[in-house]
């Protein structure tokens, strides 16, 4: 652990600890099931860790708190009425290309399309849509080097606002063609990470965030769920597991010691998993933390593509089949 970051001691805690977030998340479970909300609740039900979430929100500096609240005003446009006349889509590949172009023009760093699957929904939730368009918007790397400070937290909130605007623009365009589309920006109703992985935005890193070729983990996600016919993207293998198996940067730098060096069973899948109970306390103390994203070697601007090439070449050499 480096001493660059605040120490993991806390002046707040639970007198009676709630059920472990790792249990809620299904750590150690061998059978598949959908996720349960544990933090950043949608308001649909009171969560076991809601007191900590309330503390997190209400002890934020006003500049961040107000931004978050005002972002909600913008999010009212995430859904809306459809055009009366539906534009036929004879060529789904052409439509995908057109929508990706609109998203990129609006500022998206990466765009991927995937069929909508149940693993992107929490238990008890429904979203009757055919596909998901996932957008990744990079954060300013230099600003994010100040992780654990108000400055970096403000950049994160602003990135969520900007990526929300992109998905809202995209959803509005699709609705203007007469097809259902709902934007999910800073939403607690949708799990963006499984969708992003399926849409080929990147792969899951050991720090629990998606690592994409170009921006590493230094981006925020938002999605549009829609019924418009689209050509789907597929998952990618850019060598993230090769890096994470050998690299210990985030594991060492995480002051809360929340990142494991091995993949674990979570709801029936073996994958990288971050210890919720350790992570969340530090997350709350440090305005949303973000250390693991910032220290990841893949997040350094310009580094990703060559790093991916090197890792894949090494693997091919090691295992020519």
């Amino acid at each position: 652990m480096t001493n660059r970051f605040p120490t993991p001691d806390y002046h707040f805690n639970y007198r009676k600890a709630p059920v472990s977030g790792n249990t809620i998340n299904g750590l150690g479970e061998m059978s598949q099931r959908r996720a349960r909300q544990v933090f950043h609740g949608s308001g649909a039900r009171k969560l076991e860790w809601s007191a900590l979430e309330t503390f997190f929100g209400l002890t934020m500096p006003l500049q961040i708190y107000i931004r978050n609240a005002l972002n909600r005003w913008e999010l009212r446009k995430a859904d809306g009425p459809l055009a009366r006349k539906r534009t036929p889509v004879p060529d789904s590949a052409k439509m995908s290309k057109q929508l990706k172009s609109i998203a990129r023009h609006a500022g998206a760093g990466a765009v991927g399309i995937t069929p909508m699957t149940e693993d992107a929904l929490y238990e008890g939730q429904t979203a009757d849509y055919q596909s998901a368009i996932v957008i990744a918007l990079p954060q300013d790397y230099e600003t994010m080097r100040a992780v654990t400070t108000v400055k970096a937290a403000t950049e994160t909130v602003d990135t969520y606002r900007d990526v929300s605007r992109i998905v809202m623009t995209l959803a509005a365009h699709i609705r203007s063609l007469g097809w259902r589309a709902r934007a999910y920006g800073e939403s607690a109703d949708l799990l963006h990470i499984p969708l992003a992985i399926n849409a080929g935005i990147g792969q899951l890193g050991k720090h629990g965030s998606v690592i994409g070729t170009e921006f590493g983990s230094n981006f925020r996600l938002a999605s549009v769920l829609t019924d418009i016919p689209l050509a789907m993207d597929s998952t990618v293998d850019i060598g993230v597991d090769d890096l994470c198996l050998g690299c210990q940067r985030c594991t060492i730098d995480c002051p809360a010691d929340a990142i494991s060096n091995r993949q674990q069973w979570v709801r029936g899948k073996k994958k990288w998993y971050v210890d919720f109970d350790r992570c969340v306390m530090y997350f709350v103390k440090t305005f949303g933390c973000g250390i693991c994203i910032e220290v990841c070697p893949w997040s350094r601007p310009g580094r990703g593509p060559s790093l991916s090439q090197t890792l894949l070449a090494k693997r091919a050499k090691r295992d020519p089949t």
Binding site: Y10, H11, F12, N13, Y14, R15, K16, P18, R45, K46, L47, E48, S50, A51, L52, T54, F55
Partner: peptide, 15 residues
Amino acid sequence: RVLYLDDLIDSGKDD
């Protein structure tokens, strides 16, 4: 000293 959240904030499930 430690601030106990349960003393200050309503906690727990409602379902």
